[in-house]
Computed example of a mutant assay.
Amino acid sequence: IGASKIELGSDVHIFKGVRIDVKGEDSRITLEKGVALEKDVTIGALDNTCVQIGEGTFIGPGVCITGPGDITIGKRCLIAAHVGIFANNHNFADPTKYIADQGISCQGIVIGDDCWLGHNVTVLDGVTIGEGSVIGAGAVVNRDIPPYSIAVGVPAKVIKKRGMKELVLNQQNVKE
């Protein structure tokens, strides 16, 4: 029978009011070297859940990261205040039953290295945010975001690629 655990790398900074909950069998929360959790961050892992936060990632105040689906956040990410990362979803198809009685789905979430999630972003279950992406403040990410994308809005939509400004301008000039 497996055991639940919390693993902390070196130089992890945990500020006042952080809550880290690991419950059930085979659940694990790993904070790699240099992770910083600002005040009032909540991280939760239920049965058979793994939450892993990569080296040098900063998690801003009031962020909520919770399973029971697995969550992987890459290295050197910036997660601004009040972001919600929720790796589960309630089933609700049967209107004759309470939603709470219909179970949940848990596909998990992956956020690549070097991503920046702006203030109050919500990331929903089943999403992969590619390496180097930027998600604008207030966005709701309900589908995959390709690497090096800039996405904004509700639902989040890619508006351009990082480092592609020159190419986009050149293409517009050719069309004119």
Rank of each mutant, 00 (worst) to 15 (best):
K97V: 02
K157Y: 01
T42W: 13
A87G: 01
G136Q: 06
Q102K: 03
F92Y: 15
T30I: 15
E38R: 13
T72Y: 10
N120L: 07
N48C: 12
I59T: 05
F58A: 10
D113Q: 03
N173K: 15
G67H: 05
N173F: 12
K75D: 04
E131Q: 14
T66R: 13
T42N: 08
F58G: 10
C50D: 10
N170T: 05
K160Q: 13
F15K: 15
C106L: 08
P95C: 00
K161S: 15
P155G: 09
I53N: 06
D70S: 09
A36C: 09
A93R: 15
K165Q: 15
L169A: 14
P95K: 09
A100T: 11
H13K: 12
T128M: 01
K75C: 07
A36R: 08
K16M: 01
V123E: 00
L8H: 05
I53E: 05
G108I: 06
I104P: 00
I71S: 04
E176R: 15
N142D: 10
V41K: 07
F86I: 14
E131I: 01
G56T: 09
L78D: 11
H13W: 01
D113R: 04
V154H: 10
Y148V: 00
G153W: 04
A137Y: 09
V152G: 02
T128S: 11
K160N: 10
H90V: 04
G153D: 03
N173V: 08
V134W: 02
F92W: 14
V110K: 13
G112V: 01
V18Y: 06
D47R: 10
L124I: 07
L167S: 14
V121G: 06
H119E: 09
G24V: 09
I20R: 00
L31R: 05
P61V: 12
G54H: 08
R162K: 15
V18M: 06
L31D: 08
D11I: 00
S149T: 05
V141E: 05
G163K: 03
G138C: 02
D26F: 11
G17N: 10
E7T: 15
D101Q: 08
A3R: 12
I135R: 07
G2E: 14
V41A: 06
A36N: 07
K160D: 09
P61G: 13
V174L: 14
V174R: 15
H119G: 07
A3D: 11
G153Q: 03
A45V: 01
A137M: 14
V12A: 06
G17D: 05
E131C: 05
I43S: 05
I71T: 05
G84E: 07
R143I: 00
Y148E: 09
N91Q: 14
H13P: 00
P147K: 10
D94V: 08
D21N: 14
